[in-house]
Design a protein around this nucleic acid. Structure first.
Lengths: 301, 301
DNA sequence: GAGGGTTACGGCACCCGTAAATATT
DNA sequence: AATATTTACGGGTGCCGTAACCCTC
């Protein structure tokens, strides 16, 4: 049984075909393209034809004697170059010797989970000779460390995305409590807070004050300790939606707690003296964070 | 004559192979992968093998009965997904009906050349039904227009890259005169200036004042008029290196003119209500600007 | 022995080069 | 005539499914 053209009609663009196409478009002729690619001009002609009826689109206008790109052709040209570039980049990565060295990464403690473990695991497996130093502090401290040159790149949680930052994700800050707990009815509200410079602290207290609600700080303590206190119904706190541990509960508006402003997960990469390993890790963080938490779920063709 | 493996050994990654590989890695087995891809598990096995000796790297450890990614395999996995995603994105673009609508683009007059004409030409050809409105003002005015919602995206020339901007390019600001001219020895220096709010104006005057040199403004007038005055040896001015017209001359340090700070070409895209056409144009500007003026040439090793 | 991977085999389709046909200047 | 693309043909290779073989649990 041939499973040729099922519901999904094999939508794969052959990079060789893309090369022939780009070469033809750039040189303006198939003969010249063939010369570039070490192919007969007849072969190039066939490749273009194959590409055309793969996409079911005319790519060139063959009027007169001049090959002119059609609209679809121009459209493809603009993107085919990227495909080829990516192909070559991957090829380069795969044939180069593995990176070595050290990358110093900063992450605020409250978003290590669930973002980082899978990323770091994969990166570690992919580049076993690269040592990753993980610095875990508050967002402000991390930004200082970055500009001081103590780390190479860092994630932060901030209410904006300042100059030099790259926004990866925007998420709601949500109140967090113990399932079945009652502590959030207490007045003053016991607010667990890992760190005085925690970025979320200001947001929480600002919300509470605007509401006229009394509060008291529980802590400061480490992130894990704070989570334990919440689990024990000794306090509430706020976290990004996706970093809420499964055994804790998100407190909606009916809990009487004030709405909180959304926060951003930003990425900073050191601009000077940055090497390929740093760029590679940054790329992975970008990819994986957006893949896992932005994209709903991609059907696998 | 077969030109099989010449100096360039056909470094094309078959997207179908990449699909098989990713599916295998994600499902943890070739049987399950085959089920996803509508392939025999034998076929999947062959595809993995083909990919392995295409890259000349083992991708899986076949110990025990479990397939585990090798370092190279993990490395490939991280990037193969991007390749597939790009392939599918292109396929989507090519099979979708062409975009329609209007894009309002802002550009400071002094960098229209040589950046924009080829980009706009290509974009116009690729999406003939899209109307491009080109707004040509100073960088500050353009930023205002963007936040007022009067334009959808804009290029600027600035000495920094503020929040919300994306830096495409950094280039030296250079003094510009007429070949064989003598006007730059005149005191006070006649400085051609297209527009009082021109971003370069401050840089030029600041440089001159630091040097203690006297100056007078010639203009303001339109960009073309100013270039004509320079060509007539009536004034000098400063432009980004790559927008210097071929018939004018760059004045080096031996001209006695002060050094100037480098400038950035930044891109701003409206964040709200932005549609696919705007994103597509932004993507093209990014690609083409960096392609033509930044990347020297990538060694394909 | 059941489940999963590898390998051999047969057939079909793909894809190149050669070369003839076609078209444009 | 000359240059450039298309097309027909032949041969080699690629790649699938089938199925046998192998290994581990």
């Amino acid at each position: 049984m041939k499973t040729n053209d099922l519901s999904v009609p094999l939508r794969n663009i052959d990079v060789a075909l893309a090369r022939a196409f780009v070469a033809t478009a750039e040189t303006g002729g198939m003969t010249a393209a063939g010369r570039l690619l070490n192919l007969t001009q007849g072969a190039v002609s066939q490749q273009i034809k194959r590409l055309e009826d793969l996409l079911q689109k005319e790519l060139f206008d063959r009027e007169h004697r001049q090959l002119t790109l059609t609209a679809e052709g121009e459209r493809l040209l603009l993107h085919a170059r990227r495909l080829i570039a990516l192909n070559d980049e991957i090829w380069g990565l795969m044939s180069a010797p593995g990176f070595e060295g050290t990358v110093r990464l900063g992450v605020p403690g409250d978003i290590i989970r669930p973002f980082l473990p899978p990323i770091l695991r994969a990166f570690k497996n992919a580049w076993p000779k690269v040592k990753i130093e993980l610095n875990c502090e508050s967002s402000v401290a991390l930004k200082k460390a970055l500009s001081a040159g103590d780390i190479d790149l860092t994630l932060t949680t901030e209410s904006d995305t300042p100059q030099g930052a790259e926004r990866l994700l925007t998420e709601d800050l949500v109140w967090l409590g113990c399932p079945g707990g009652r502590i959030w009815h207490e007045d003053p509200l016991p607010v667990g807070n890992a760190n005085p410079s925690c970025t979320f602290r200001a947001a929480m207290l600002h919300g509470l004050e605007k509401q006229g609600r009394d509060w008291r700080i529980v802590g400061p303590s480490g992130h894990e300790v704070m989570l334990a206190k919440i689990e024990a119904d000794l306090a509430v706190t706020a976290l990004l939606q996706s970093s809420v541990p499964p055994h804790l509960e998100i407190l909606g508006p009916d809990s009487g707690l004030p709405a909180l402003t959304p926060f951003h997960v930003n990425l900073y990469v050191r601009t000077s003296q940055t090497n390929e390993v740093v760029q590679e890790l940054a790329q992975q963080i970008r990819d994986q964070v957006t893949r896992r938490f932005a994209a709903p779920e991609r059907k696998a063709g």
